[in-house]
Nucleic acid binder design. Structure first.
Lengths: 143, 143
DNA sequence: CACAATTATATTGTGCACAACTTATATTTG
DNA sequence: CAAATATAAGTTGTGCACAATATAATTGTG
């Protein structure tokens, strides 16, 4: 059999498996905030910039409205953000954190460090991993 | 704001985004085989070992029956594998490729090389990426 | 200014992923 | 050997992802 077709020789499979494993590692921490991993990513952006359009969130997370609209509606239901049509352009929906959403930031501040500890990778390895993966992602953005 | 909470400082987000990007890059190739990426992974295993239990597939792919059962049923519908209860242990379901499933291997043989070309990463970077990610995954298996 | 093209978001449908639970069979053990 | 336990797969429900399409508002152009 063609060696390149063997599962153990795949490069993408470990990345796919690791990505899922990562969100599992986040789970216990995010459960305390009643957030899923994608929802947590939205909150990270909103904590940096209180107001974002659906489009802006999509560009930063590489997600489209088909994914974001229902996700944001669920977060709105939880009372951690608001969705309002822009007055100046009725096509645009503005996403803002609520007070409850802002308050979650304190608890969330502890997550990154705890997560890195569970990953079992050195700082050097993490930096290298990020660098390589980002290189491939930048190519995508330019495409 | 806590620097570690900034999206650009996250290590897991690039991995998550890259993992999704990867399956998008596979898409044009897998469309020709009418396979999704997880289905392709199942086929990789079956091409190596013609017969596998649902459990064995799950251990190799880190997936449970809740994911695999419907996925395998869809593949059975396509006529590329069979699902049969084991005679010696009625709890076990044996997954085997059909002739049609075996035949797909020829076409699939071209995929790995083409995919690596589209990733835009050097062989060294790919090897390093795999090594780092596998290190984190091995920890999981032992856990 | 009308109308064609573009842009922003929403909707629908399919396929994972995973938690929690169920069902059926096999194994262990008192 | 019967009851308890363990194991294998299936089911149900929720939440992404993403393609394809729809809807509505805005912008560009003749």
């Amino acid at each position: 059999m063609n060696n390149q077709l063997k599962l153990e020789n795949q490069i993408c499979f470990p990345v796919y498996a690791f990505s899922r494993e990562m969100t599992n590692l986040y789970k216990p921490f995010l459960d305390e905030l009643s957030l899923t991993y994608p929802q947590y990513l939205v909150m990270l952006i909103l904590w940096e910039e209180k107001q974002q359009t659906v489009n802006q969130l999509g560009e930063k997370l590489y997600l489209d409205s088909g994914t974001l609209t229902p996700l944001l509606k669920r977060m709105e239901q939880k009372g951690i953000l608001t969705r309002t049509r822009s007055k100046t352009d009725e096509r645009v929906v503005l996403i803002c954190t609520t007070e409850a959403g802002e308050k979650m930031q304190e608890k969330a501040a502890l997550i990154p460090e705890q997560l890195v500890a569970t990953l079992g990778l050195s700082i050097d390895e993490l930096q290298l991993l990020k660098k390589i993966v980002n290189k491939a992602l930048v190519r995508k953005v330019l495409a």
